[in-house]
Design a protein around this nucleic acid. Structure first.
Lengths: 416, 416
DNA sequence: ACCGGGTATTCTAACGTTGTAATCCGAGTA
DNA sequence: TACTCGGATTACAACGTTAGAATACCCGGT
């Protein structure tokens, strides 16, 4: 292997090339010889109009093929018809690297040269081939974003913010839906889903601490949402305990006294459940109110039906709650539905508050009081933290970043 | 340019390499010489556990660097520490291409060879470098998906289906939000946002026919949603006229007689507006009912506030409608809100129907009657059509694909 | 011993880019 | 005149993969 039976020939080729006349003449001659094949390629692949001008007609010889007979019929050429650095270089009469320098601002380039190169770039409509750049640099500029439940408006809204933040940083986002499956989450966290990605933003649901620790750590990871993983990587989430306390206190201030909660999980509650329940109980205790286990029935997940189901259980209690804090808006909307089905009214019979401030909360009937995390900030911080890890390498300690939130008071918790 | 002052030396290098002893011995010697540098690389980049076994410790010489002194300190190596085809090849004692053949099933490989290669792959934890593969093949396996309004649950739900469909076909999806901006849509349609993508699925909003025709057609494109672009590319959408007719007829059958519509657009109505209005008027005419312009006030966009606003206008009419067909669920939910604000009730005072069947429609109070397009089918067909274009090249005619839909009757249109 | 014919494998170049080291060139200096 | 210096530019190799052609191999038949 690596024996070079043919290398003498190759050296010969190169030699003859080297002995030839100055470059431009040489190249044009070469072009002449391969022109026929080039036309074929153009015809076969590009339906669009030909690149402007005739520039490009003079600049697409294949390298190392001075022989002519050795032109391979390689059908696998990438992005056929697109101008390459080489084409721009020939058109501008400079080297490939100089064009690269102009494109990337990598090195000082004389004004006159830059002008010529820029002109050639414009004329040829040159656009860098990302695949090649990425192969060479080892960076793809692609961040993976994985949520457990994409159709949940909270995640959808957050995704939009992340996409926008990534764009501001020159990255694109590859989305994935883990469906809350631990295996899928681990796959994503390890960056194995697609090894092209530079980093991962994950909102874990089922992943446990050990699994997370076992991930392949070569891909930087940022976690979104409260989590109890210790700080093995950067986390971005608002202060859930404080937010839950605030919204519960708001109910208390509104005159409600028998306040239920929907979102607790019984075997193995997630961090979200724990923290929001903690805030809830703290607020009750601060107000000298009783914390009654019957008032926070467990749910399985955090979707509308879970909220409706839990609400139905609360409605069966001998003594009804006069207000309910749902740990997210989806459950609140499900609960609202259940209250309505029972012939009761919000907030007259039972007040409701949620968490997340999805757009829907504003338009629900009645509109829903909720906690509004600063989604823009969350996304920006997550992308920023991830890019820091990608660019500056991995330092051991994970950071915790807590963007702010607001309590948005609407009809569903009208003061009684 | 391209003068090869150094090529004689290069030929010399290759020559001496060729003259060397049989490959494996040669390579091991080479490895020895570069081992120190390799350790540095490993330390610098990979925090994870070292690859299993000691195999990999013997297989990472740098090609064309038999010189030793010529080892470049290139810091830009991609995916540091990861096993390459070359490493597997050396470990298995076969050529790179044979490994490639095993990985891709490209050619017949003897069972014994395949076994050895597979073993080496497992031992080294080899994973193909997508970037390189993609550079070489010109395919990225990435589809772009662009919606005008990602947080709209209809699009979010559809996006999930598209992601799933793409995964079934071995592709990943890169999402983008055009915000309904024509320029952004054109950029996407031309595949210029990121030239790494193989194809585009776009749900256009503002793009007009001329703009679309002017796109760079080198990137296959599939349009989602009704559109009046002629068939310059594949379209996937349900039969909007029929669906609108069905849902309107449902209202008529329910005993409603003065039926409004929300979703018309006045200057330059979009195809959606035209087709749904057409179905609506057809149904009315079929039933011998009057079509009254005052009953379909124009809207600007299709979001909740637009529905609420249009509803408020309908509520100011001297004679109120007894039912309203909203051209999407979001507007229906906004309209519901407006009806509630006016002190009226759905469906007692005014019945409402929507279009899209977003999850929210089921949980609204009252739950919303709506048209449920087969989102799974839409996504599957869109991805399928796109992949056909990508794989089989571009044939001129665009196809129209019409997945099915269902009328889902719920509380908001209860029979009177 | 030699050949023909198929199968299994290898060699080489190429995809388009960028980092490094080398080279070129003109001005300033000895 | 020779020589350095430094800025501008270039040559080369390399990133990891795959296509295609070339070669090695093996077996049965001459």
């Amino acid at each position: 292997m690596f024996s070079c039976a043919q290398s003498p020939r190759m050296a010969d080729n190169r030699d003859s090339e080297a002995r030839g006349s100055p470059h431009s003449h040489d190249l044009l001659a070469e072009t002449d010889r391969t022109e026929h094949r080039r036309d074929d390629l153009r015809k076969r692949r590009s339906d669009g109009p030909p690149l402007r001008g005739t520039f490009c007609d003079a600049v697409r010889p294949r390298p190392h093929c001075a022989d002519g007979a050795r032109v391979s019929a390689d059908r696998a050429l990438a992005r056929p018809g697109a101008a390459r650095l080489r084409d721009v270089a020939v058109a501008a009469g400079v080297s490939v690297k100089t064009v690269s320098n102009v494109v990337n601002g990598t090195a000082r380039v004389a004004d006159e040269t830059r002008r010529r190169v820029q002109q050639a770039i414009d004329a040829l409509g040159y656009h860098p081939n990302m695949m090649a750049r990425r192969l060479r640099t080892g960076r793809s500029g692609v961040l993976a974003l994985a949520f457990p439940e994409m159709p949940n408006p909270y995640f959808a809204e957050l995704a939009v913010e992340v996409i926008a933040a990534a764009r501001r940083h020159g990255c694109t986002v590859l989305m994935d839906d883990t469906a809350g499956d631990a295996a899928a989450e681990l796959r994503i966290a390890s960056g194995l889903g697609d090894p092209m990605i530079d980093g991962v933003i994950l909102s874990p649901l089922s992943l446990d601490q050990n699994e997370l620790a076992s991930r392949d750590r070569s891909v930087p990871l940022v976690l979104l949402g409260e989590a109890d993983y210790g700080l093995v990587c950067d986390h971005v989430h608002i202060d859930n305990v404080a937010a839950a306390r605030d919204v519960t206190r708001h109910l208390i201030d509104g005159g409600y006294r028998r306040i239920g909660a929907i979102g607790w999980q019984d075997p193995s509650p997630r961090a979200t459940a724990q923290q929001r329940l903690l805030g809830y109980t703290e607020a009750l205790r601060d107000a000298g109110l009783l914390v009654d286990q019957a008032l926070f029935p467990p749910v399985r997940s955090y979707r509308r039906p879970d909220g409706a189901e839990a609400m139905r259980r609360l409605l069966k209690l001998p003594q009804l709650p006069d207000a309910v804090f749902c740990f997210n808006d989806m459950m609140a909307l499900g609960a609202m539905r259940a209250i309505y089905d029972a012939g009761l009214r919000v907030p007259d019979d039972i007040a409701l508050v949620g968490f997340d401030d999805v757009e829907e909360a504003e338009y629900a009937i009645p509109s829903l009081t909720t906690i509004a995390p600063d989604k823009t900030k969350i996304a920006e911080e997550a992308v920023g933290a991830l890019l820091r890890r990608i660019n500056d390498g991995y330092e051991e300690a994970g950071r915790l970043i807590q963007p702010g939130y607001r309590l948005v008071v609407r009809e569903s918790s009208r003061r009684r």
